[in-house]
Design a protein around this nucleic acid. Structure first.
Lengths: 193, 193
DNA sequence: CGATGTAGAGAACGTTGGTTCTCATTTCGG
DNA sequence: CCGAAATGAGAACCAACGTTCTCTACATCG
């Protein structure tokens, strides 16, 4: 493994562990074991656990962004592009490993104690909101609609995580459809409520 | 302080600390100091830290429930009773100490490692969904509408927490108004979108 | 007053955390 | 082959955790 692959291997391993069980629950020794590397190696690549956590968050942001944008780009009708977000969520919620939004989890666990983790989570959410904003522009919707649709996506994630209701994606999707129709002036009759 | 007051004092103190900084970040020694009691006393009342965490969650559930229901009961028009939830959220978000939903935070931090904490968080969310369901019944809405409105409330909480946008309550409220109107057949024209 | 119990302060205990160090082993250019 | 540098396994280290224990001081009641 070249250095880049090594870095990535560590980050991907850490991501899996942190996401599944919480950050503070997973010690460096467990990461050492799971990655098959020595502590010395880990610390020669990253200066501290916190730096690994931050890299994991960047990594997860990448995964999320490419996942969502990939799902959106498969669709051409603007309204359906927006709704593709919720379809993507539905797929994710049905994953075995799904345990909510990693950024919300990291923020709740360590946001109060690590400004960098808090900032990284905030940036992630901000970028998602901006992305929704662009898609909303495509359908001629208002910024307010974008805010509402982003809130629906957030709510679906926590509802699916805690209540285990992966159906939350469907509810969010239907709500989004309604809000888009009303906001853009598409006849509501055309929408199944 | 009689035993009940003592218990409550400990729980309220722990709640403040855990909510503000995360559960694992606050050690028993800090709770001892903040509560002004000895460790011996703490452990004579609660068998373990986890039991305190669970009591804190029950306490917070009480606070939340009485807060929301109190806000709703001040209003008589069924639609406005539903919207009162989001007004209540708006007030909460503007609180200095606001740091998201304590149940989501606890779930993200310890849900994977403590089944009891996970279950308590789930129960809390379930009860809120049921409550929204009752209010939706009052306006003649469908269960699907209730699910959508609950998702909006969840999303507003995490959006306000991470992005610091307390305006999320307003967006959620407007979205809720739209969804209620469409779902119950109230003319949409009567709604500012 | 003296014996008995209770409460508090904080030391102690055992474990675990993140991080660093040791040292035997390997690698590899000369 | 040989010596220098790098690597790996894991011990070591220090601080913090949750929990328990000790011991002193004080209250209570005969």
């Amino acid at each position: 493994m070249n250095p880049d692959e090594l870095r990535n291997h560590i980050i991907a391993t850490a991501d899996e562990l942190y996401y599944a069980r919480g950050i503070q629950t997973v010690g460096m020794d467990e990461l050492r074991q799971a990655s098959g590397l020595s502590l010395k190696k880990l610390y020669s690549i990253f200066p501290s656990k916190e730096s690994i956590v931050l890299e994991v968050m960047r990594y997860r942001h990448q995964l999320w962004t490419t996942g969502v944008e990939g799902a959106v780009e498969k669709v051409s009708v603007p309204v359906d592009r927006l709704l593709a977000i919720y379809d993507y969520l539905a797929e994710w919620f049905d994953t075995d490993s799904f345990r909510g939004c990693g950024f919300i989890n990291a923020f709740g666990e360590l946001g109060a104690v690590s400004p960098q983790i808090a900032a990284t989570a905030r940036t992630h959410k901000q970028q998602f909101q901006d992305y929704v904003g662009h898609l909303v522009d495509e359908v001629g919707g208002t910024p307010e609609l974008a805010a509402q649709l982003a809130i629906l996506a957030e709510g679906a994630q926590t509802t699916a995580a805690i209540s285990g209701q992966s159906s939350a994606a469907g509810s969010a999707r239907r709500a989004a459809r309604t809000l888009i129709s009303v906001n853009t002036g598409t006849p509501v009759d055309a929408v199944e409520v």
